[in-house]
Design a protein around this nucleic acid. Structure first.
Lengths: 124, 124
DNA sequence: CTGTATCCTCTACGATACTG
DNA sequence: CAGTATCGTAGAGGATACAG
């Protein structure tokens, strides 16, 4: 299946998940759930993101309707990003997933350690 | 932050989500939630995945403790993949996320159409 | 301040061939 | 049957410079 975005889809909603759970989106959404932010405020909140990637992330989230972009035509211009009602509904499912991750991090760490130990043993 | 996997982490559990929600993992986990599968059964269940990618996906999931790999030393060998108890606990959170996606697909489609229409208008 | 525009690197992934 | 090995490509994303 081809979505026209050049993506092959095998699983229902895979493309959508890619757009809203991508590298920087959760950080941005997390911040915008707290308060509306301007572009450079977001940069400071997520120090590792580059300008280019932040712009791309914001455009993608805006296109999917989870955030909203308002240009204030002052001089120099100000841009205010906000979470939308649709965006707010995304918070709960994401929290559920993050809660799972937090809760199971110890078990996962043990699994990784065990796996890596097996690898080392068979590799030597 | 560097995890030793060469990944920069900005958001809690980002690396873990990348390993478990990646391109093919949900398809594989979905299948293994139904029944244990052998390697080629999985290939048939997920026809678009290549042998190489399926192997990589299975190793990653195994390392994180959500699936289990059992080698049956017959001739030729058989390999049985199964979901683990930990893997089963992942199902509910993922279902919540997919339910959100299913429920909001119409709203997201409308948002995309509106965004694209705006783009076209300003671009011309 | 809020972006574009280039360039460049690095990794994910597919295609294909081969192996125990 | 269940992989590994090798090669090639496309795209994500960083660094940097420039612009309205």
């Amino acid at each position: 299946m081809d979505t026209g975005d050049g993506l092959r889809i095998d699983f229902p909603h895979r493309e959508l998940l890619d757009q809203i759970l991508d590298k920087w989106s959760l950080s941005v959404l997390d911040e915008l759930c707290e308060r509306p932010c301007r572009f450079n405020e977001l940069r400071r909140s997520v120090p590792q993101v580059t300008q280019k990637s932040l712009t791309a992330t914001l455009r993608r989230l805006e296109r999917n309707g989870v955030i909203d972009r308002e240009v204030v035509s002052t001089r120099p211009v100000a841009v205010r990003y906000r979470i939308t009602p649709l965006g707010k509904t995304l918070r709960a499912p994401v929290e559920v997933l993050l809660a799972w991750a937090a809760e199971n991090t110890p078990a996962i760490s043990r699994a990784r350690d065990a796996f890596d130990a097996r690898e080392d043993a068979s590799g030597s």
